[in-house]
Design a protein around this nucleic acid. Structure first.
Length: 427
RNA sequence: GUGGCCGUAGCUCAGUCGGUUAGAGCGCCAGGUUGUGGCCCUGGAGGUCGGGGGUUCGAGUCCCCUCGGUCACCCCA
C-alpha cells in the first residue's frame, strides 16, 4: 500500500461547481422568502451537550436512540453532532431569552448514522425556520405558507402538503390510550405487535398490510382533540384555505420527534419515485422550551432537506444550472501582463471576468486555445490583446454569442464595450 | 442494522467459454490557420479493472473478505 486513497465518508458527499450554484440559489431564495416575513439568521454550534437532543427530540425517537453521532470530548463531556436543527435553536433561545415572538431561520448540516441510499445521507443539509412565543394558529399558517412559497419559487409544482394534529397534553394521552385499546385486539405486523402498548401512534404510519388494515378505521386524533386543540386545528385549516394552499388531512402523519404538539405537517415531492420523498416537514412544539429549561413558551417550525429538494428539482426539470456565469474572458497572447491588468480593471468595474493562464511549460497558450477556453467558459465577450493592440493601446472586443461582432477599441473604452456586448450585468 | 443488485479512463459504458500490449463515445490537451472560439478531421495524455486474499500455467472475468454506491425494510430531510 503506497499512497492511501481517500474518499468522502460513507453517506456524505461533496458539492462542487457548477452544481453548487443550485445550492447558492436555493439558500438565497429561502433566505429572501423567510427574511421577508421577519425571520433572522441563527447560527448555532454543530454539536451540543447530548442532553439537548435527548431531552429536546426525545429519548423515544429513533433519531436519538439509534442514529446520533455522539462522542466524548477531551474534557470528558458527552457531546453529539446535531441530528436536526430545532433543538439547538430552542436551546439558544432558552440561553439568551430574546424578546418574543422570536423568528429565526437556519441552514445547517444534520448528522444521522443510518444506512445511506438515494435521498438519505449521514450528513445532509437542512433549511429551516423556528418561531417562538405565539400560540396563534395564524403563525402555523404562516410557517407552512413560507415553506410552500420556497418550493413554488424554485418552480416545483408537484409538492403536496399533508397536515395533522397531535393534540396536546390534555387530549393526546387519552387518545393514546384509546388507540392502544383499539389496536391491542387487532392483528398487527410482528414489529408493532410489540410496540403498540409503548407507542400506538407509530402503528399508524406502518406501511405493512396488517397494520394498514387494522388502523384504517381506528380512532383518529383529529376526532378526539380537546376543545382548544380542535379550535386551533380548525383555524389552521381556515387559514390555509384563505391563502389558497392545498392540503390534505392525514391521520397517519405521525412525525418522528417526540416534541410535536398540535399542528404537524409534511411536504412530499410526488415527482420522486424513491421511498424518501419527504422534502420538508415540521410542526408545533409547545412544550419544548420548557423541556430545555426555559419558561413555558409555544413554538413552531419546519426543516427542509436541501439534497431532496434538489432531487425533486431534477425530477421536475426545474432549477437547471445556467450555462454562463461570466461577462468577459480575457485573451492575452503577448505575455500575460495585459490580461493581468485588464481583468483587474474589469472586475473592479463590477464585471464577471476570467482569463487564460500560461501552459505548464510557462509558454503562453495559443490564441486558438485561449479562445476555446473563452468559449467554454460561457463568457459572452472575449477581449483580445495581441501585438497590434499592444502597440496601439487598444483591445479587441469580440462577441462570443450571436452574430460576428468584433471591434478594436481604445483601452479606456473596454469596460463600456463589454457592458454593452454582454448585456450589461454591471450593477 | 437486515436483505437484493452493482463497482472497468474525469463521465457514460463495452469487454465472448478465464487467454497475451484492457477498448469506445463524450470530455481534456495539441495540431490542421505564423491573430480568432463553436462544426469537422488527425494525433496525444489519461486505467492500482474499488481494495485485499484465494483458485489457476494464466483472473477485469471464478471464490471469499472488505470498502463504496444503489434499491427495499426501518426511519426520516
Amino acid at each position: 500500500m503506497s499512497s492511501p486513497s481517500f474518499q468522502a465518508p460513507k453517506g456524505t458527499h461533496d458539492v462542487l461547481p457548477p452544481e453548487s450554484w443550485r445550492w447558492e440559489q436555493l439558500i438565497a431564495r429561502f433566505a429572501t422568502t423567510v427574511e421577508g416575513a421577519g425571520y433572522g439568521l441563527v447560527v448555532n454550534p454543530l454539536f451540543e451537550d447530548i442532553g439537548v437532543f435527548l431531552r429536546g427530540i426525545g429519548e423515544g425517537s429513533e433519531v436519538v436512540t439509534k442514529e446520533m453521532y455522539e462522542f466524548e470530548d477531551k474534557g470528558g463531556r458527552r457531546q453529539a453532532l446535531r441530528p436536526e436543527g430545532t433543538a439547538s435553536v430552542v436551546r439558544a433561545f432558552v440561553q439568551h431569552r430574546p424578546p418574543v415572538p422570536f423568528k429565526g431561520w437556519y441552514v445547517t448540516p444534520a448528522f444521522r448514522y443510518e444506512a445511506p441510499q438515494a435521498g438519505r445521507y449521514r450528513q445532509h443539509h437542512q433549511l429551516g425556520v423556528e418561531a417562538l412565543g405565539t400560540h396563534d394558529p395564524d403563525l402555523d399558517v404562516e410557517v407552512i405558507a413560507l415553506a410552500d412559497e420556497v418550493y413554488r419559487s424554485l418552480g416545483l409544482r408537484q409538492v403536496t402538503l399533508k397536515v395533522n394534529s397531535m393534540g396536546d397534553s390534555s387530549c393526546l394521552p387519552a387518545y393514546r390510550r384509546l388507540l392502544a385499546d383499539y389496536l391491542v385486539s387487532r392483528s398487527l405486523c410482528a414489529e408493532h405487535r410489540e410496540k403498540v402498548a409503548l407507542n400506538p401512534l407509530r402503528t399508524l404510519d406502518c406501511k405493512r398490510d396488517e397494520c394498514r388494515a387494522a388502523t384504517e378505521d381506528a380512532p383518529r386524533m383529529v376526532d378526539h382533540l380537546c376543545a382548544p386543540c380542535a379550535e386551533h386545528f380548525a383555524r389552521l385549516g381556515d387559514g390555509l384555505a384563505a391563502l389558497g394552499i392545498a392540503y390534505s388531512v392525514d391521520f397517519r402523519l405521525v412525525r418522528g420527534f417526540d416534541y410535536y404538539t398540535r399542528t404537524t405537517f409534511e411536504f412530499g415531492a410526488e415527482a420522486l419515485a424513491a421511498a424518501q420523498n419527504a422534502v420538508g416537514g415540521g410542526g408545533r412544539y409547545d412544550g419544548l422550551v420548557e423541556a430545555l429549561g426555559g419558561p413555558p413558551t409555544p413554538g413552531i417550525g419546519f426543516g427542509m432537506g436541501v439534497e431532496r429538494i434538489l432531487l425533486a428539482c431534477d425530477a421536475e426539470g426545474v432549477l437547471p444550472v445556467p450555462e454562463t456565469r461570466l461577462d468577459a474572458f480575457v485573451v492575452d497572447v503577448v505575455g500575460g501582463r495585459e490580461a493581468l491588468a485588464l481583468t483587474a480593471e474589469l472586475r473592479a468595474a463590477g464585471l464577471r471576468v476570467d482569463r487564460a493562464y500560461a501552459s505548464d511549460d510557462g509558454q503562453p497558450r495559443s490564441m486558438k486555445a485561449q479562445l476555446r477556453a473563452a468559449d467554454r467558459s460561457g463568457a459572452r465577450v472575449a477581449i483580445i490583446v495581441g501585438e497590434d493592440e499592444l502597440a496601439a493601446g487598444t483591445a479587441t472586443v469580440k462577441a462570443l454569442q450571436g452574430g460576428p461582432v468584433q471591434e478594436q477599441v481604445s483601452r479606456s473604452d473596454v469596460v463600456e464595450w463589454v457592458t454593452k456586448l454582454s448585456g450589461g450585468s454591471r450593477p
